[in-house]
């Protein structure tokens, strides 16, 4: 087996092993590994930064949403206030108009009744005068003698008053 027979090559193998391994170690430690770790660190930083920014944007969006919801709620409340106010106002106005109309109608009815009452009294008075005149004329024709107007009126008044 050459591994155990070629004893003369052992020193050469060891020398070259430590030479190449030593150089490789230095190259790895000084150059290659720092470079790779820097690449990985840069990437990690970038990922962390992106995540942080995404988080910030998310909180910002949440605050915007909250502000929008607050504004919407305020506007809704305002609209309801306006609605209630105008409904009350309209109701009050309608009630007022209703009342005014009722009053005016009542006044007109009262005035009409008063006019009717006056007309009736007038008519009653006229009836009495006509009745007295008729009675006087009727008595003249029946008796042939002129009648006293005032006595006819008294007689009519007596009859009307007796009935009334």
């Amino acid at each position: 087996m050459p591994q155990l027979e070629q004893v003369g090559t052992f020193l050469s193998q060891l020398v070259w092993l430590f030479l190449t391994f030593g150089i490789l170690y230095i190259v790895m430690k000084r150059s290659a590994l720092p470079r790779i770790s820097q690449i990985l660190a840069t990437r990690q930083e970038r990922i962390d930064g992106d995540l942080r920014r995404a988080d910030e944007i998310k909180t910002e969006a949440e605050s915007v949403l909250a502000a929008y919801e607050a504004a919407a709620a305020r506007a809704r409340a305002e609209a309801q206030d306006i609605l209630r106010d105008s409904a009350e106002r309209f109701a009050a106005e309608a009630a007022e108009k209703n009342e005014a109309l009722g009053r005016r109608l009542a006044e007109e009815a009262a005035a009409g009744e008063a006019r009717i009452g006056a007309a009736r009294e007038q008519a009653m008075a006229d009836v009495e005068a006509i009745a007295a005149e008729l009675a006087g004329l009727a008595a003249e024709r029946l008796t042939g003698a002129p009648t006293d107007r005032s006595s006819a009126e008294a007689a009519v008044a007596q009859v009307v008053g007796g009935r009334g």
């Binding site: 193998q13 070259w16 030479l19 490789l24």
Partner: peptide
């Protein structure tokens, strides 16, 4: 005797190969 052998050659190739790879 520290002759450059086929073993040494492969070690050097490994050294260069790893360095270039990385």
């Amino acid at each position: 005797d520290i002759s450059f052998t086929n073993s040494s050659l492969m070690m050097v190739i490994a050294l260069i190969g790893i360095t270039l790879f990385l």
